[in-house]
């Protein structure tokens, strides 16, 4: 469930930027991601052996960890102060969200058995948003 919220709320960053500020949505997305990770740990009873063997052997778990790790610098540099300090570098750094997006999609894709309908739906929505965004910015 949280996976769906994450995937849907990442593009919301662009979609409703005039409604709510993008930073809050980004932080909410991170908190939901953390909660999702916490549930995973809880589900494995915080058993170090289990969690390590997952991390070593499972691709979908690795994609999830990588996405979570890449999210951390974005959260740390989300204050006004750091944003101003980093200048153009800030924007370059925050393009990492696209990589996080791809990794989250992969994280989901890798556990699907046969029915790719919902996955395709998310993908279509995301692509549509990205295309619209590009048009708006270039015009």
């Amino acid at each position: 469930m949280s996976m769906i919220i994450i995937i849907l709320s990442v593009p919301l960053l662009y979609f409703v930027k005039n409604f709510i500020d993008r930073r809050s949505l980004g932080l909410i997305t991170f908190v939901v991601t953390l909660f999702h990770f916490f549930l995973y740990l809880l589900d494995n009873s915080f058993n170090f052996k289990y969690i390590m063997s997952d991390l070593i052997s499972l691709w979908f778990i690795q994609a999830g960890y990588l996405a979570l790790l890449l999210f951390i610098p974005l959260v740390l540099t989300s204050t006004d102060k750091l944003r101003n300090k980093l200048g153009n570098k800030w924007f370059t750094l925050h393009r990492l969200i696209y990589l996080i997006l791809v990794l989250s999609l992969l994280h989901y894709y890798l556990i699907i058995k046969a029915d790719y309908f919902l996955f395709n739906l998310y993908l279509a929505i995301l692509l549509a948003i990205l295309i619209i965004k590009r048009r708006v910015y270039s015009s």
Binding site: D43, Y50, S53, D54, S57, L58, W59, F60, L110, I111
Partner: peptide, 12 residues
């Protein structure tokens, strides 16, 4: 014998 994409060692 694990499934290629997930583990079969444990179950819920």
């Amino acid at each position: 014998v694990d499934h290629p994409r997930w583990t079969q060692k444990r179950e819920r």
